[in-house]
Amino acid sequence: MLPLLRRMQSRLDATPHLLRLGRLVSETVLLKVGEAEYYLVFEKGRLAEILPGPSRKTPWRFAIKTDAEALAEFWKPRPRPGFHDVFGLVTIGRATIEGDILALVKNLRFFKEFLALPREEAFA
């Protein structure tokens, strides 16, 4: 997962419209995949750091908790219904969102498109 997150980090840097959408986003997001934790530290729309957890010292604004199998389907070009969106994963019981959900919603397009970067042809 860590190499893939690093590829997402570099794809974000190469995606000008996302950097523009995220220019006010300076938040730490916890991504939990199975038992593995990754703290994604965003600074002005860039993913400044990826800190593998677990950590009890790293504060986060919101957390997305899911599993590797669900993410693999989510990242397909045409996922099955429910796996096609992060809120879809929540509604089918394959993810939870915890913490300050409004911070996610205020920047929802930015975070959704960041999370979907591995779907893009340019990602491969």
Partner: peptide
């Protein structure tokens, strides 16, 4: 969420309903 002075309701609404669009 979709009507507040500190964020754009239309943009948040669009990002929300994008969950309902087929791939």
């Amino acid at each position: 969420w979709f009507h507040r002075p500190d964020a754009h309701g239309g943009e948040m609404g669009a990002a929300l309903v994008s969950a309902n669009i087929s791939p």
